[in-house]
Amino acid sequence: MPRAVERKEYPLSMRLPETDIAIIDRAAALRGRSRTDFVRDAAVRAAEDVLMETAPIRMSPAGFKAFMAALSGPATPVPEMIELFQRAAPWETKAFSSEVDAGSREENASKQKGGSDTGG
Protein backbone atom coordinates (compact mmCIF):
# COMPACT_ATOMS: atom_id res chain seq x y z
CA MET A 1 0.00 0.00 0.00
CA PRO A 2 1.51 3.39 -1.00
CA ARG A 3 2.39 5.81 1.78
CA ALA A 4 0.94 9.29 1.80
CA VAL A 5 3.56 11.85 0.84
CA GLU A 6 3.93 14.56 3.45
CA ARG A 7 3.27 17.95 1.92
CA LYS A 8 5.97 20.47 2.70
CA GLU A 9 4.10 23.57 1.59
CA TYR A 10 1.97 25.75 3.82
CA PRO A 11 -1.03 27.80 2.73
CA LEU A 12 -1.00 31.56 3.18
CA SER A 13 -4.15 33.59 2.81
CA MET A 14 -4.43 37.37 2.59
CA ARG A 15 -7.22 39.82 2.03
CA LEU A 16 -6.16 42.62 -0.30
CA PRO A 17 -8.00 45.53 -1.87
CA GLU A 18 -8.82 45.21 -5.55
CA THR A 19 -6.36 47.98 -6.40
CA ASP A 20 -3.48 46.04 -4.79
CA ILE A 21 -4.44 42.88 -6.69
CA ALA A 22 -4.55 44.83 -9.95
CA ILE A 23 -1.03 46.21 -9.37
CA ILE A 24 0.32 42.79 -8.41
CA ASP A 25 -1.31 41.12 -11.41
CA ARG A 26 0.06 43.76 -13.78
CA ALA A 27 3.59 43.41 -12.42
CA ALA A 28 3.38 39.60 -12.44
CA ALA A 29 2.23 39.64 -16.06
CA LEU A 30 5.14 41.89 -17.02
CA ARG A 31 7.50 39.32 -15.51
CA GLY A 32 5.64 36.38 -17.05
CA ARG A 33 4.85 34.95 -13.62
CA SER A 34 1.73 33.84 -11.82
CA ARG A 35 0.35 36.00 -9.02
CA THR A 36 1.35 33.33 -6.49
CA ASP A 37 4.94 33.09 -7.75
CA PHE A 38 5.28 36.86 -7.92
CA VAL A 39 3.95 37.45 -4.39
CA ARG A 40 5.95 34.56 -2.93
CA ASP A 41 9.20 35.83 -4.47
CA ALA A 42 8.53 39.41 -3.35
CA ALA A 43 7.69 38.33 0.19
CA VAL A 44 10.74 36.08 0.49
CA ARG A 45 13.01 38.80 -0.91
CA ALA A 46 11.62 41.35 1.57
CA ALA A 47 12.06 38.88 4.44
CA GLU A 48 15.66 38.17 3.41
CA ASP A 49 16.37 41.92 3.30
CA VAL A 50 15.10 42.36 6.85
CA LEU A 51 17.10 39.39 8.10
CA MET A 52 20.28 40.63 6.39
CA GLU A 53 19.82 44.08 7.95
CA THR A 54 19.74 42.57 11.42
CA ALA A 55 22.32 39.79 10.99
CA PRO A 56 25.40 40.42 13.12
CA ILE A 57 28.75 40.36 11.38
CA ARG A 58 31.29 38.38 13.34
CA MET A 59 35.03 38.56 12.83
CA SER A 60 38.20 37.91 14.73
CA PRO A 61 40.05 40.77 16.43
CA ALA A 62 42.74 40.55 13.73
CA GLY A 63 40.08 40.64 11.00
CA PHE A 64 38.43 43.67 12.62
CA LYS A 65 41.78 45.45 12.84
CA ALA A 66 42.42 44.82 9.12
CA PHE A 67 38.88 45.99 8.29
CA MET A 68 39.33 49.24 10.24
CA ALA A 69 42.73 49.81 8.61
CA ALA A 70 41.15 49.45 5.16
CA LEU A 71 38.42 51.93 6.08
CA SER A 72 40.85 54.40 7.62
CA GLY A 73 43.33 54.32 4.76
CA PRO A 74 43.35 56.72 1.84
CA ALA A 75 40.79 56.20 -0.89
CA THR A 76 42.04 54.60 -4.08
CA PRO A 77 40.70 56.12 -7.30
CA VAL A 78 38.84 53.77 -9.61
CA PRO A 79 39.55 54.77 -13.22
CA GLU A 80 36.14 53.60 -14.45
CA MET A 81 34.36 55.73 -11.85
CA ILE A 82 36.46 58.79 -12.74
CA GLU A 83 35.57 58.34 -16.42
CA LEU A 84 31.89 57.89 -15.56
CA PHE A 85 31.73 61.10 -13.53
CA GLN A 86 33.49 63.06 -16.27
CA ARG A 87 31.03 61.86 -18.91
CA ALA A 88 28.06 64.11 -19.76
CA ALA A 89 24.72 62.91 -18.43
CA PRO A 90 22.28 61.72 -21.12
CA TRP A 91 20.02 64.74 -20.57
CA GLU A 92 23.01 67.03 -21.12
CA THR A 93 23.65 65.71 -24.63
CA LYS A 94 22.24 67.21 -27.79
CA ALA A 95 21.02 63.82 -29.08
CA PHE A 96 18.92 63.29 -25.95
CA SER A 97 17.41 66.79 -26.19
CA SER A 98 16.51 66.20 -29.84
CA GLU A 99 14.78 62.91 -28.99
CA VAL A 100 12.79 64.54 -26.19
CA ASP A 101 11.81 67.49 -28.39
CA ALA A 102 10.73 65.16 -31.22
CA GLY A 103 8.66 63.08 -28.81
CA SER A 104 6.99 66.20 -27.43
CA ARG A 105 6.19 67.46 -30.93
CA GLU A 106 4.67 64.08 -31.90
CA GLU A 107 2.61 63.99 -28.70
CA ASN A 108 1.30 67.52 -29.25
CA ALA A 109 0.47 66.78 -32.89
CA SER A 110 -1.51 63.65 -31.95
CA LYS A 111 -3.43 65.60 -29.29
CA GLN A 112 -4.38 68.26 -31.84
CA LYS A 113 -5.51 65.60 -34.35
CA GLY A 114 -7.67 64.08 -31.62
CA GLY A 115 -10.02 67.05 -31.98
CA SER A 116 -9.47 68.56 -28.56
CA ASP A 117 -10.99 72.05 -28.49
CA THR A 118 -8.58 74.61 -27.12
CA GLY A 119 -11.13 77.39 -27.43
CA GLY A 120 -9.03 79.39 -29.91
Rank of each mutant, 00 (worst) to 15 (best):
1 M>K: 09
1 M>R: 06
2 P>G: 10
4 A>F: 07
7 R>C: 06
7 R>N: 07
7 R>P: 01
9 E>L: 13
10 Y>V: 14
10 Y>Q: 04
10 Y>P: 01
11 P>Y: 10
11 P>V: 11
12 L>R: 12
12 L>D: 02
13 S>H: 07
13 S>R: 11
15 R>T: 11
15 R>N: 02
15 R>F: 12
17 P>D: 10
17 P>I: 05
19 T>K: 06
19 T>Q: 07
20 D>A: 08
20 D>P: 00
21 I>S: 04
22 A>I: 08
22 A>N: 09
23 I>W: 00
23 I>A: 13
24 I>P: 00
25 D>H: 02
25 D>A: 09
26 R>G: 09
26 R>P: 01
27 A>D: 01
28 A>C: 08
28 A>W: 05
29 A>D: 15
30 L>W: 09
31 R>H: 11
31 R>W: 14
31 R>P: 00
32 G>A: 04
33 R>W: 15
33 R>T: 06
36 T>E: 14
37 D>W: 14
37 D>G: 11
38 F>I: 01
40 R>Y: 04
40 R>M: 01
40 R>V: 12
43 A>F: 11
43 A>V: 12
43 A>R: 04
44 V>D: 02
45 R>K: 15
45 R>A: 15
46 A>E: 14
47 A>F: 12
48 E>N: 10
49 D>R: 10
49 D>P: 00
50 V>E: 11
51 L>I: 12
51 L>R: 09
51 L>F: 15
51 L>N: 05
51 L>Y: 13
58 R>H: 11
59 M>R: 08
59 M>Q: 12
59 M>I: 12
61 P>K: 07
62 A>I: 04
62 A>W: 01
64 F>V: 05
64 F>G: 06
64 F>I: 15
65 K>C: 10
65 K>V: 13
66 A>R: 08
67 F>Y: 14
68 M>F: 13
69 A>E: 10
69 A>Y: 01
71 L>P: 05
72 S>V: 14
72 S>R: 07
72 S>N: 14
74 P>C: 05
74 P>E: 09
74 P>S: 09
75 A>I: 11
76 T>K: 08
76 T>I: 07
76 T>Y: 03
77 P>R: 08
78 V>G: 00
79 P>I: 07
79 P>A: 05
79 P>T: 02
79 P>S: 03
80 E>G: 09
81 M>S: 04
82 I>D: 05
82 I>P: 00
83 E>M: 03
86 Q>E: 09
88 A>P: 04
90 P>Y: 07
91 W>L: 04
91 W>T: 07
92 E>N: 06
93 T>C: 01
93 T>R: 02
94 K>A: 15
94 K>R: 11
95 A>C: 03
97 S>A: 15
98 S>G: 04
99 E>D: 14
99 E>F: 07
100 V>S: 02
101 D>K: 14
101 D>R: 12
102 A>K: 10
102 A>W: 07
103 G>E: 04
103 G>A: 15
103 G>V: 05
104 S>P: 00
105 R>V: 10
107 E>T: 13
108 N>A: 15
108 N>K: 12
109 A>K: 06
109 A>E: 11
109 A>C: 08
109 A>R: 08
110 S>M: 09
113 K>G: 01
115 G>A: 06
115 G>E: 02
116 S>M: 15
116 S>G: 14
116 S>N: 12
116 S>Q: 13
116 S>W: 13
118 T>V: 13
118 T>N: 15
119 G>N: 04
119 G>P: 00
119 G>F: 02
